[in-house]
Design a protein around this nucleic acid. Structure first.
Lengths: 185, 185
DNA sequence: CGCTATATGTAGTGGGTGCTACAGTACCCG
DNA sequence: CGGGTACTGTAGCACCCACTACATATAGCG
C-alpha cells in the first residue's frame, strides 16, 4: 500500500467525520499528522483530493451493501436496506453524497462526473440487491429508484429533526416496493 | 418597505441563484450594487444574513404551495405537488433547503433551528394541501412525510443525472399515497 | 561510492474572508 | 437654524486559504 493510498484512506476517514463542505487542507493535514504541503504533493490539488475521498467513501458504502445477504421478499429487502442505510458507516457515506449533490446542485464544483459515477454505482448495487431478494427483473430499476430516493429524503429529514414518522414511512415504502414487484403497472 | 427589507429580498434572490454554501459578502454585495459594509450594517453578521435568506426562501415556496388550489384526489394532489416542486421558483427554494440540511448534517453551522422551523412550516403546508385534496385527516401526516421525503430525494437525483425514471417514481408515489389514505394500515 | 526517485520541511505569495474604525452625508423633527 | 437618526464610503485589520519555490533528507540500485 503506497503512501498515497494510505493517505487517501485517512483522508476519507476524516471526510466521513467532517464532511466535504468546508474542508480545508491545513486542519485536515494536522489531523492526519502531516502537512498541507504533503497533501498537495500527493494529490495535486485540493479538488482532486476531495473527489478521491468521495469515490472512496462511495466505494465503502457500496462494499457494505454488496456484502448484505439476500432476504426472502422485496419487502424484507427494503427493510434490510434501511438498516444498512442507518448503519453509521453507510449513513456517513450517504451524507457525504448528499453534500456532494448539494454542492453540485448549482454547478459550483467540478465533481459532477465523480458524483454521477458514484451514484450510478450505488444505484446498481441497490438494484442488484433487490433483484437478489426476488424483485421482478423487469421492474427492479423502477423499484430501486423509488426506494433510493425515498430513503435519501428520509435521511435528510432525520438529520433535521428526529422525526418519529420515519419508521412508518419505511414500512409504507417497503409495502409499495413489494406491490410494484408483484403486479403489473 | 425599509431598506433592510429590500436588501433582504435581493439577498434571497441572489441566494436562490447561487446557493448558500460558498456565499461570501463581497461578491454578493457587488451583485446587489452595494458593499459588504452595508450588508454587515443592516444584518449584523454574515450568518444572520444567511439565516434570514433561508427563511425568506422558505416563505416563498410555502407561499406558492399555499396558493395551490385543491384537486379532487390525493393521487392528483401528489402529482400537482410535484409540478409545484418542479416549478423553478420552488425548485430553487428546495435546493437551498437541501444545502442548508447538508450543512446542518454535520452540525457545522448554527442554523439548525432556522432550518428546523422552516421545514416544519413546509411540512405543515404540504399536509394541509393534501388534506384539502381529501386525504384522510388521521393519516395525512404520515402521507405528507412519505411524499415530501420521496420528492426531496428525487429532486436530488434529478440534479445529479437527468434520470427518466423520475416521472414513473412520482406516479408510484401518488398511487401509494392514495392507497394509504383510502384504507387502513 | 554516486545517482535518481520519492518524500518532506520551511517559508512564503497573492488573494479572499468577515468584520471594524472613522469619517462623513442626507434627511427629518424641533 | 440645530441636532439627532439613518445610511454610506474608505481604508484597513487579522486571519485563513490553496498552492509554490527551494532546499533537504532518505532510500534503492548500479
Amino acid at each position: 500500500m503506497s503512501r498515497r493510498e494510505m493517505l487517501a484512506e485517512q483522508v476519507t476517514d476524516y471526510v466521513l467525520e467532517h464532511g466535504i463542505i468546508g474542508l480545508s487542507l491545513r486542519p485536515l493535514a494536522a489531523a492526519l499528522g502531516t502537512s498541507d504541503r504533503m497533501l498537495v504533493y500527493h494529490f495535486g490539488t485540493r479538488d482532486a483530493l476531495v473527489a478521491e475521498a468521495i469515490e472512496l467513501s462511495n466505494a465503502r458504502s457500496v462494499g457494505v451493501l454488496r456484502g448484505l445477504r439476500a432476504v426472502r421478499s422485496v419487502r424484507a429487502g427494503v427493510l434490510a436496506l434501511w438498516q444498512v442505510m442507518s448503519d453509521p458507516q453507510v449513513d456517513r457515506c450517504q451524507r457525504v453524497y448528499a453534500q456532494a449533490a448539494a454542492l453540485g446542485l448549482l454547478g459550483r464544483e467540478p465533481f459532477a462526473d465523480t458524483v454521477r459515477r458514484s451514484n450510478a454505482e450505488w444505484m446498481r448495487a441497490v438494484a442488484d440487491y433487490l433483484r437478489s431478494c426476488g424483485a421482478s427483473p423487469g421492474r427492479v430499476q423502477r423499484i430501486a429508484r423509488l426506494v433510493d430516493a425515498t430513503m435519501m429524503g428520509l435521511q435528510l429529514d432525520l438529520s433535521v429533526e428526529d422525526s418519529d414518522g420515519v419508521e412508518r414511512a419505511i414500512r409504507d415504502l417497503a409495502r409499495t416496493a413489494q406491490r410494484i414487484s408483484d403486479k403489473a403497472a
